[in-house]
Design a protein around this nucleic acid. Structure first.
Lengths: 205, 205
DNA sequence: AGCAGTCCCGGACACGGTGTCCAATATGAT
DNA sequence: ATCATATTGGACACCGTGTCCGGGACTGCT
């Protein structure tokens, strides 16, 4: 099923690595230009100077290339996160490294987040959800009746939206600033903004 | 550009209305079965018992049909929201009507939210963002430095994620319950869950 | 340097979906 | 009943996909 193309010792042929890198770069470069949907395999190959038949020996199609690209960078990111000390005394530790990575690979994130194709968003979203869930689960829940999964969806949805916005808007704020805002708002909600709780009234009926 | 097909007095031919309704229903019915991406115009027409050439007299393609479907229901929803009293003393008034509508038209929302094609999510998201923005803008902002637009992205992202999750998960909770959770968490963040603020520490470095 | 194994190329092919056109027919509006 | 307009199905060219193959180029190993 999966194309690995490694030899007995797990090393990868230089040509293979070169080809894949070229294809991934070409896709990332193309997405901002024309939008993911309208890009064809032909386009990618032309940009990458790769034969179309070669493309299909590596990927089954456009979607798999996109997915593999995301996966590759997510992997390098997770190495980066676990390299940092996991203190465990701070909420949402994935946040800052993610923002930093997003800034470092801005064009990549911009390309992937803006083009919300069927699978790609789910792929990223599931990763984020997992991270949030593991951070939230061990915490004690009060008597509010809010299900854990609700909170997980709430926080991860907010995170992704903020990330996409920050990346799209030229990222004028620094990663630490964005992280700071996110942490505070995740912890305190709009109450943080100084909106008095008297604004919050029970719904009609 | 836009196909209107209304007569001088603005009335719509019954045949047109019938055809469009059939096509929209067919699409909604088809999405859960096979996923939006793999559906062809031919499929839709077959399900709707409509000639393929007729399809193209109404819509330029699959995407426009999907977009028009969303727009139509969003329109009926907004009529519903404005019918309710706009008290203005409650945050995020769009929330409850939206949850109620989502439950009433569950299959529709499920179909549209799950298949996050390129444009559809943006379309819905922009609507939500607008609603949040108008509610947040007039409020006073404290000295936290959090930009309004950040808060808008945060809240609308959280809302959409929660909505999609709730719809996908059989909607076991009632609209009022979900709305209640959303309102509380939007107002107070995870602090609501009884997570002590001592868990929130400044980031390393 | 030489060899074997692997990869890349490019051209060809069948296939399926798209979007457009038209003349014939059916159906709603008045 | 008559007219205007919608629908129909079939035909058409076009484009992107996915697959195959033989010739040539490159890599890794000795």
């Amino acid at each position: 099923m999966k194309i690995e193309r490694t030899d007995d010792r797990g090393t990868i042929d230089r040509r293979v690595a070169r080809t894949r890198a070229l294809l991934q770069d070409a896709l990332i470069a193309l997405i901002p230009e024309r939008g993911y949907a309208s890009i064809t395999v032909e386009d990618i190959c032309q940009k990458a100077n790769i034969g179309r038949s070669t493309f299909y020996t590596h990927y089954t199609g456009k979607d798999e290339l996109r997915s593999a690209t995301l996966e590759a960078h997510l992997h390098s990111l997770s190495r980066r996160v676990s390299a940092d000390e996991k203190t465990g005394n701070r909420l949402f530790e994935f946040s800052l490294p993610m923002f930093e990575h997003a800034r470092a690979f801005r064009s990549l994130h911009h390309a992937l987040l803006s083009s919300s194709g069927d699978t790609i968003h789910d792929q990223l979203r599931e990763r984020i959800r997992r991270a949030v869930r593991t951070e939230l689960t061990p915490k004690r829940i009060g008597d509010t009746g809010v299900p854990i999964e609700f909170a997980v969806q709430f926080i991860s949805g907010a995170f992704l939206a903020v990330l996409a916005w920050w990346i799209a808007e030229q990222s004028r704020l620094s990663p630490t600033q964005i992280d700071d805002f996110f942490q505070k708002m995740a912890a305190q909600g709009v109450g943080l903004l100084g909106i008095s709780s008297s604004d919050i009234k029970p719904a009609r009926r």
